[in-house]
Simulated scan of single mutants.
Amino acid sequence: AKETILIKSLNKQLLISFFKAVRPQLFLYIGMLLFSSAVYLLGRLPLDLLFYTIELTAFLFFLYLLAQFYRYAKRYGRLQDIQQDKIELENYLPKGVDPADEWYHEKILSLVSQLRETEQCFGEKNSEQLEYFTLWLHQIKTPIAAISLLMQSQPKQPLTKQVDQELLRLEDYTHMALNYLKIEESGTDLDFAEIDLDYVIKKTIKKYSILFIYNYISLEYKETQVSVLTDGKWLQILLEQILSNSLKYTVGGTIKIYMDPERSETLVIEDNGMGIRAEDLPRIFEKGYSGLNGRLHEKSTGLGLFLSQKIIERLGHQLTIESVLGKGTKVFIHLARKELELFD
């Protein structure tokens, strides 16, 4: 049904385009008919001869339009193929007999060649920068790990606690950049399996235990006792992003992690932090958008929730956020997945 509608739409567009193209010929033919009719009437020639002339010229003009329509439809179809990148431009453009047409064709091919060279140079340069950036991210992890080990061997002083927190944030930002590069790769493989949700949650909580302790944030965690079909590694990265956000904007408050009693297979991460403005909520998943809170407190890169949305789409789950400014935020991770459609 969809293909039939598409064909009808294309045929309609073709006819409209054709009549627009032959509009000058139509007007010329109608003008000649009117002129001929005026000559016959003024000369008082037989009307039968006039009607015969009109019928004959109409038949010949119809044959002319059919020939023109055949050529136009063929040309129109090839233009559609070029637009959809089905054929190369060089194979389409014919050598015209008009010198002006030949000049236009040469100019078009020259511009296409320049565009391809520019795209190739840009792609190579972008690839080199991406490789360097990825290598740098991997290398920077080594000194961060070394500093972390050195700090663990030192007595816990107030300054040491602050450095521990900043190190954790530095690790988070480094991993965020690496994960962003990985999730943007279309060929990133996912390893789906039945994952113990509590195991992933506990690993995430343990990673951020320093921030809970040092910032006097209490945790209320109810074990879910749920298994979910997902990629455990990317699910943990998702939970880290969300929990990290909650810790940034919750000072001396409480973070709750539990399964939604009203919605099945929905994990909730709730905090009583500063919340999000209503006007910021529609844009929180946009790349680089940090909202008012992020700008005021200079804690947001605008990548955390953008990356979370990318991950949730790849995993086939859903992510929704509810928030009230000054009261807190609830993040709902809908873990149910639709049945995989192997065939369309």
Results as ranks from 00 to 15, higher is better:
residue 13 Q to R: 15
residue 130 L to R: 11
residue 91 N to D: 10
residue 46 P to T: 09
residue 307 L to H: 07
residue 185 E to G: 10
residue 70 Y to G: 10
residue 326 G to N: 11
residue 204 T to S: 14
residue 293 N to E: 08
residue 149 L to W: 02
residue 305 L to C: 12
residue 266 T to S: 05
residue 240 E to L: 01
residue 211 L to W: 00
residue 82 I to N: 00
residue 143 P to I: 07
residue 115 L to S: 09
residue 197 L to F: 12
residue 251 V to Y: 06
residue 20 K to V: 02
residue 13 Q to E: 15
residue 268 V to A: 08
residue 107 K to D: 01
residue 83 Q to H: 15
residue 121 C to F: 15
residue 155 P to R: 07
residue 235 L to Y: 02
residue 299 K to Y: 06
residue 124 E to M: 08
residue 163 V to R: 05
residue 70 Y to L: 15
residue 303 L to Y: 14
residue 145 A to C: 03
residue 14 L to P: 03
residue 172 D to S: 01
residue 84 Q to D: 08
residue 203 K to E: 15
residue 55 E to D: 05
residue 251 V to Q: 13
residue 18 F to Q: 04
residue 271 D to F: 01
residue 319 L to R: 09
residue 274 M to P: 00
residue 200 V to G: 02
residue 201 I to E: 01
residue 80 Q to C: 05
residue 62 F to W: 15
residue 251 V to M: 07
residue 206 K to T: 11
residue 144 I to M: 10
residue 48 D to C: 07
residue 226 V to F: 01
residue 306 F to L: 02
residue 271 D to W: 01
residue 64 Y to P: 00
residue 260 D to R: 06
residue 126 N to S: 14
residue 273 G to E: 02
residue 136 W to I: 10
residue 285 F to Y: 15
residue 303 L to G: 06
residue 19 F to K: 06
residue 64 Y to A: 07
residue 265 E to C: 03
residue 65 L to I: 10
residue 147 I to G: 01
residue 235 L to I: 10
residue 51 F to L: 13
residue 312 I to G: 00
residue 265 E to K: 12
residue 25 Q to A: 13
residue 168 L to M: 06
residue 209 S to L: 06
residue 11 N to D: 04
residue 67 A to S: 14
residue 133 F to I: 14
residue 2 K to H: 13
residue 197 L to D: 01
residue 255 I to M: 04
residue 320 T to V: 05
residue 211 L to P: 00
residue 40 Y to R: 06
residue 226 V to P: 00
residue 262 E to R: 10
residue 114 Q to P: 01
residue 9 S to Y: 13
residue 336 A to Q: 08
residue 124 E to P: 02
residue 236 Q to A: 12
residue 158 P to Q: 05
residue 226 V to C: 09
residue 170 L to D: 01
residue 137 L to M: 11
residue 33 L to D: 02
residue 49 L to M: 13
residue 98 D to Q: 08
residue 219 L to N: 12
residue 229 L to R: 05
residue 302 G to K: 04
residue 217 I to H: 00
residue 206 K to I: 04
residue 260 D to N: 15
residue 204 T to Q: 05
residue 336 A to N: 09
residue 161 K to I: 13
residue 281 L to D: 05
residue 36 S to R: 03
residue 298 E to A: 15
residue 199 Y to D: 15
residue 120 Q to C: 11
residue 248 K to S: 07
residue 131 E to G: 02
residue 38 A to G: 07
residue 329 T to D: 02
residue 23 R to Y: 12
residue 59 F to A: 15
residue 157 Q to W: 10
residue 325 L to K: 11
residue 77 G to N: 13
residue 155 P to K: 07
residue 186 S to W: 04
residue 254 T to F: 03
residue 118 T to C: 04
residue 125 K to W: 07
